[in-house]
Design a protein around this nucleic acid. Structure first.
Length: 807
RNA sequence: GCUCGGAUGGUGGAAUGGUAGACACGCAAGACUUAAAAUCUUGUGACCAUUGCGGUUGUGCGGGUUCAAGUCCCGCUCCGAGUACCA
């Protein structure tokens, strides 16, 4: 009867993986539940603890929901394109295809050894040509709809990885992968017009049940703002410039205008400048061109700029304002021209201060009167009441903006525009290990799409290749692959050698799980209608901006072209915490504090490992590894095993107390798992054990106990089920129906407070009225000392909770 | 700077506005043992009292609402994550 998991855990896993009880069945007449976890990148290392923990938690959810009669789809696959494998392949001169296959085999074995009931019949792999055929197909559709285009653009160039990277991959001016400072380079790049979906990506968040923190991050990234573009006439000319602002309520405080130095309008303005100033302007343009965006943004806060000598007239206030060029203004933001309001913008104040431009205050707020603004500290950036502002006087900032908007329209001198922080998605990578972009360049026909029937455009398998120094993809060196026929005219043509970023394959993988082997379609519409949307998408915080946004964008596009049936891909999205190494530091190879799940399984067994990972702390919080604590879980699991088996041997009649305890435990386990409170689900089991391990139970009740333990301790439950002569498998049993009556108490003990302090306890019957209870409390001997000679001011009775007496 | 989280014993953490510290680790004492490990029992926020009952205080800090606040409101401090010359 001793708990020895080595004797049975593997045996049951083998049986599970051959009997396939956990597969999701298409079209089955049950409530469907699509539970999605982020698929891992199969690196050369072992699976990370973070992944392991979340998969174990979600496996418990999947097992519970199946027992609750739901048709659960809980799939797994591999996000296998990407740089680590490519770099390793270059180093050891082996094809990444081979390396990837080995890594996947290791990872799959690890997942299986944890007893996770992923539906392996639906396994996918983003690097499988049968999979990336459809990634390429989606690209073609995007191209056909004008949402993919190639353009010469300054990109962030990573000199180490020899590749361009999206703004989103640049952190602190460094490539997030390798920490190398990125440079600016002009390169012809494929770009996807995600900005065209910005509005819907923002608005449709309302259709989902994502955690608010997830919605907020999406919205901040999209950065929707209302902008006011205002035309100013340049004095002494017929030219106009259009500045943009989000704070038109401060217009009467505007005292200058700044144009981005690289802005095309500068050429036009030059016509009105004198020779000396033109020279200065050109010198400044040259300087700022050589500064990378990083440099322009970096620590050096000293503002630079050049006065054009030109003046423009504020079309709202009539004020004459000097025009400057300055590189803190970016062409890509707004109209690339800014109106400066030094009293209400710190950056404008710094600039005005340097160039002796007047500061005019026009907003007052609750904590700040109309006093003069004379230092950076008292620049007033908040909203408030507008003064000194002609037709805007005395109204709030918000109302003033509306009024300015109306005024612009009425006079025809500007527009109100919605703009987004989001920029288009740079989709090219100059690398080998990614999906080839299915485009052919023909001298005669230009850019030609590869016809659908010729997909996939497969990556050539080669022994070795290196990134090129020219910045082209390594594919460019593989001539026999590059040289091809033009699908249109049959003449000589060259393949596109850029590949897709590894965000591509992960932007739609959840759709392929639904119909993984379909060779005619991305996925069958009826199957999609049955399974979609994903009911719950579980993942890390690092993917709630980019990956989530990209995949929602692709999904909306696929919806528009009639491929998928839902507007949004995921109904719910939650964020798990990190697993930190001992002492609360990051787990990393260099610190040597990486915990390998294999070692834990070897030492403690699978169920103990799984239960410990869930018991460590709440789902959403970061947890710190503590090897001492796992012993507590091990102790509990062994005792629990021995307890149930011995209780089975001495079984008899359960009293009502035991029946109630099991009913309550069943409810707690179920509710806690569904609410992702795995730690308290296990605590509930421990509490039950502590109170009842010597009690007598009926066999019916013990069966129920084993069943409700199964989602958390799947191997243990299966073993006990079999030892107590039940038919395989416990995981195919129905979750027990709970008799509501068992959850109610006839008599409960509730605390009695006097003036807010607990002074005693009293037993209350279920059907007792407040009057009866009051009488009982007031005549209670133990409380007498507190109540004697006191005036009773208030008697509060909260049913089943507490009594508070104010005297 | 901005946005979003968080702060509860020696530790990880519980707690629909209703007995703060469930559960676990650790620690201490005891039992078993030649001994140790394992296991079991008891105790364990702090302070005071201890012969028994007990009392006071306590959830980062300062206010407030309430019969009642870890939880709600206002104002801070510190820590973590994300993000930024975004006009």
């Amino acid at each position: 009867m001793e708990y020895n998991p080595k004797n049975f855990e593997q045996k049951w896993q083998e049986k599970w993986f051959s009997s396939l009880f956990y597969e999701g069945k298409d079209f089955e007449d049950k409530q469907k539940y699509y539970l999605l976890v982020e698929f891992p990148y199969p690196s050369g290392d072992s699976m990370h603890m973070g992944h392991t923990r979340n998969y174990c938690m979600m496996d418990s959810v999947a097992r519970l929901r199946r027992m609750m009669g739901q048709n659960v789809i809980f799939p797994m696959g591999w996000d296998a394109f990407g740089l680590p494998t490519e770099n390793y392949a270059i180093k050891v001169k082996r094809p990444p295809q081979e390396i990837t296959k080995e890594n996947i085999d290791t990872f799959r074995k690890q997942l299986k050894s944890l007893g996770l009931t992923f539906d392996w019949s639906r396994e996918i792999n983003t690097t499988d040509p049968e999979y990336y055929k459809w990634t390429q197909w989606i690209f073609l559709k995007l191209y056909e709809k004008g949402l993919a285009y190639k353009t010469e653009m300054p990109i962030n160039w990573c000199p180490k990885c020899k590749m361009g990277c999206a703004n989103e991959e640049v952190v602190d001016g460094k490539h997030e992968r390798c920490d190398t400072k990125v440079e600016r380079r002009n390169i012809s790049q494929w770009v996807l017009k995600i900005t065209e979906y910005a509005d819907r990506l923002d608005k449709d968040l309302d259709l989902t049940d994502y955690w608010d923190s997830v919605k907020v991050r999406q919205r901040n990234w999209i950065g929707k703002k209302t902008w006011y573009d205002i035309e100013y006439k340049i004095e002494g000319t017929d030219e106009k410039i259009k500045v943009s602002t989000t704070r038109p309520d401060t217009q009467f405080g505007a005292t200058f205008v700044v144009v981005a130095p690289e802005h095309p309008v500068v050429e036009k303005l030059k016509r009105y400048m004198n020779e000396k100033i033109i020279k200065e302007v050109e010198k400044y343009q040259e300087e700022s061109r050589n500064r990378s965006e990083l440099d322009r943004i970096s620590e050096n806060k000293e503002k630079t700029g050049v006065n054009t000598g030109l003046l423009c007239k504020n079309s709202i206030t009539g004020r004459s304002m000097p025009i400057y060029l300055a590189d803190f203004v970016l062409t890509t933001v707004g109209t690339g021209m800014v109106v400066g309001v030094p009293a209400h913008d710190m950056r404008d104040f710094e600039f005005a201060n340097k160039y002796n431009i007047p500061v005019i205050r026009v907003i007052e707020g609750p904590n700040s009167n109309r006093s003069e603004i004379n230092s950076l500290e008292n620049v007033y950036e908040e909203e408030g009441i507008v003064f000194n502002s002609g037709f805007l006087d005395g109204i709030s900032s918000e109302d003033a903006r509306v009024k300015v908007g109306e005024y612009l329209k009425e006079k025809g001198i500007g527009d109100v525009v919605e703009r987004y922080h989001l920029r288009d998605w740079i989709f090219s990578r100059q690398h080998y290990w990614g999906e080839p972009i299915p485009i052919v360049h023909c001298d005669k026909c230009g850019q030609v799409t590869v016809p659908e029937e010729q997909l996939p455009v497969e990556l050539p398998v080669v022994e070795s290749y290196e990134p090129t120094d020219t910045g082209e993809s390594p594919l460019a060196n593989i001539t026999q692959w590059v040289e091809t026929e033009c699908p249109k005219c049959g003449g000589k043509a060259k393949r596109e050698t850029d590949t897709m970023p590894n965000w591509a394959g992960s932007s739609w993988y959840f759709l392929r799980y639904i119909d993984p082997n379909n060779s005619d379609k991305l996925a069958d519409m009826d199957k999609l209608k049955y399974w979609m949307p994903v009911d719950h998408y579980e993942g890390g915080a690092e993917h709630v901006t980019l990956h989530l946004l990209y995949s929602r964008f692709w999904h909306k596009f696929l919806y528009d072209v009639g491929i998928v049936p839902t507007l949004e891909p995921y109904q719910k999205r939650t964020i798990h915490g990190f697993v930190l190494g001992e002492g609360g530091v990051k787990m990393s190879k260099s610190l040597g504090n990486v915990i390998n799940p294999d070692d834990l399984i070897e030492k403690y067994g699978v169920d103990v490992t799984r239960a410990y990972m869930m018991f460590m702390g709440p789902y959403e919080g970061d947890v710190t590894w503590n090897t001492e604590t796992i012993n507590g879980v091990k102790r509990f699991v062994s005792k629990y095993y021995e307890f149930i088996l011995s209780a089975w041997e001495r079984s008899g009649e359960s009293t009502e107390k035991e029946q109630k305890a099991i009913a309550k435990l069943a409810n707690r386990i179920k509710n806690n798992i569904l609410e992702f409170k795995f730690n308290t689900a296990i605590a509930a089991m421990m509490e039950f054990y502590n109170e009842f391990h010597t009690a007598i139970f009926s066999k019916d009740d013990l069966e129920r106990l084993v069943i409700i333990s199964a989602p958390i301790l799947p191997h243990l439950a299966e073993e006990i089920w079999s030892q107590t002569e039940h038919e395989y498998s416990i995981h195919m049993q129905d979750w027990p129906e709970i008799d509501e009556k068992l959850l109610q108490e006839d008599e409960i003990e509730i605390p009695v407070q006097i003036n807010g302090k607990v002074r005693g306890k009293i037993n209350v019957l279920n059907n007792q009225t407040e009057e009866e209870i009051k009488e009982k409390v007031l005549s209670d001997k133990a409380l007498e000392g507190y109540l004697k000679d006191q005036e009773l001011k208030k008697f509060i009775y909260v049913p089943n909770r507490i009594i508070n007496i104010v005297v």
